[in-house]
């Protein structure tokens, strides 16, 4: 019998293989300590890098004029006294009886989450300029298929129709890029919208969180990064022309991650929860237009 066929030799090979794999495991664990469980999102806010001065606002955004009261009426709010709709009253508590905003003359710009919102959100009347994978680097250059309009670029759409509300949710696809470059593009996008639609209110939407399991295992798309990015987006808001709204409050679990029970996959709400999101947007917008935040 050849040596390689002897039973003893085969047992020896198995023992050596086991020793090697166990040692490799021990050494591997030693060199790469277990991943730390990310803190809840509240804590991760403190990890957000402080934006450089002037990084997140432009002169145009800073000098955004206060919206005339008539613009609020045009922005779709119905049934609430116009006098109470002053944007200066943003620090007052939101009126409990605020009527949900209508979605006529409204545009949503965004990625796959906005695609889901367009399909399941129940926001009838709104236009949606969105594609799966859309990001701030492509939003102003690539086209999208807009219902009742056809294939169009954003600039083409903004120049052909008039909107009184424009919602933007972008960031999850490009969150691995340096924040400075993303925010620069984001700012340029907001400027384009303002230039083309001077009477529109802009609602910058916080990026939705991902589920805890995704957040713990993804080095790029995770909730600490999303929170950091959202914190910077919030600084675009002047509460006059630009508002920041954060729907994570309806989707988060106790740890500030996308609730697994509301998630269709690790990053998107279920169809039924898009409807909840749509209702929340209408309600939240109604509150803002009524003078609350």
């Amino acid at each position: 019998m050849k040596r390689t066929e002897s039973n003893g030799f085969i047992i020896l090979v198995m023992v050596v293989a086991l020793v090697v794999t166990f040692v490799a495991k021990v050494v591997g664990d030693f060199l790469e300590p277990p991943k730390q469980t990310p803190p809840p999102s509240v804590q991760t806010q403190s990890q957000a890098p402080t934006p450089a001065p002037g990084d997140t606002t432009s002169s145009q955004l800073d000098s955004a004029p206060v919206i005339p009261i008539a613009a609020f009426a045009a922005a779709g709010r119905t049934g609430v006294g116009v006098a109470s709709a002053s944007p200066e009253a943003s620090s007052t508590p939101p009126p409990l009886d605020a009527v949900p905003a209508t979605m006529e003359d409204t545009l949503f710009i965004g990625d796959s989450r906005t695609v889901g919102l367009s399909e399941y959100g129940g926001l009838d009347g709104a236009d949606f300029f969105c594609t799966t994978g859309m990001n701030v680097f492509t939003a102003r250059t690539d086209g999208a298929d807009v219902y009742n309009v056809g294939w169009v670029t954003l600039s083409g759409l903004l120049s052909s129709k008039t909107y009184n509300k424009v919602y933007v949710m972008l960031g999850i696809n490009e969150i691995g890029y340096p924040f400075e470059s993303i925010l620069g593009e984001y700012k340029a996008l907001l400027e384009d919208i303002q230039t083309a639609q001077p009477n529109a209110l802009i609602f910058v939407q916080a990026n939705l969180h991902v589920t805890a399991s995704r957040s713990y295992t993804d080095d790029v798309v995770n909730n600490p990064a999303i929170d950091s990015y959202n914190a910077l987006l919030a600084e675009f808001a002047d509460n006059k022309r630009i508002f920041y709204i954060d729907a994570n409050e309806i989707f988060d679990d106790a740890n500030g991650a996308l609730d697994e029970n509301k998630a269709g996959d690790s990053a998107h709400p279920l169809g039924a929860n898009y409807q909840e999101w749509g209702q929340w947007i209408a309600q939240k917008t109604g509150q803002i237009l009524a003078g609350g935040q």
Binding site: A17, L18, T21, F22, A24, G28
Partner: peptide, 27 residues
């Protein structure tokens, strides 16, 4: 004559790579 041995060795490597974090599965 040595092919079975190479086949076994290759199969061990194949399984060990796939279960690198769980050597108990190889055991």
């Amino acid at each position: 004559g040595a092919r079975n041995f190479v086949l076994l060795l290759g199969s061990v490597v194949f399984y060990a790579i796939g279960t690198v974090d769980r050597p108990q599965h190889l055991a």
